[in-house]
């Protein structure tokens, strides 16, 4: 009915956190460049956390958008108020909310779990690259 609304809510929160982290990272980077310029290059070699949050944000926004297209196709979402056809009938509101919580919540959990797996894989690659700096530098 409107299960994509739960991932949209998570996407809004993740985007806000990403903006905040970006500001903090930029400030930390400026501070590090002032304190120890030589170490800044080594510190920036790792992927910033804001960029990793961007992957989750893209999966959530992109997936929700494509799911919204499906809901429009099935006539569950319309471009006029109240936008969700289930809202027209009071008897449908409760099942709609249940679906948003159950299906949408499960979608949020699965997408976030996939992102956490991505982070683990990236961490392993970063550790591997840190252990063989000469090989990594030689390829570039």
């Amino acid at each position: 009915m409107a299960c994509f609304l739960a991932p949209v809510a998570e996407a809004i929160v993740v985007s806000a956190i990403k903006k905040n982290v970006e500001h903090k990272e930029a400030a930390a980077c400026r501070q590090a460049a002032e304190d120890a310029p030589a170490e800044t290059a080594a510190a920036t070699a790792a992927i910033p956390f804001s960029r990793k949050l961007g992957w989750l944000s893209k999966m959530l926004w992109g997936g929700s958008f494509l799911l919204a297209i499906e809901h429009i196709w099935h006539g569950e979402v319309v471009p006029w108020p109240p936008f969700l056809t289930a809202m027209n009938n009071p008897a449908d509101i409760q099942p709609m909310l249940t679906e948003i919580l159950a299906v949408g919540g499960a979608m949020m959990v699965v997408v976030t779990a996939a992102w956490l797996l991505m982070l683990l894989a990236v961490k392993r690659l970063e550790n591997k690259a840190a252990q063989t700096p000469l090989a990594a530098g030689g390829e570039g």
Binding site: L60, G62, G63, L66, M107, V110, A114
Partner: peptide, 20 residues
């Protein structure tokens, strides 16, 4: 990468929908 993440996000969401 953006295109791939968008499709992966949707594919994961539809997989969950399929189980329901």
């Amino acid at each position: 990468g953006f295109l791939a993440l968008m499709y992966w996000g949707a594919a994961l969401m539809w997989t969950v929908d399929g189980f329901f």
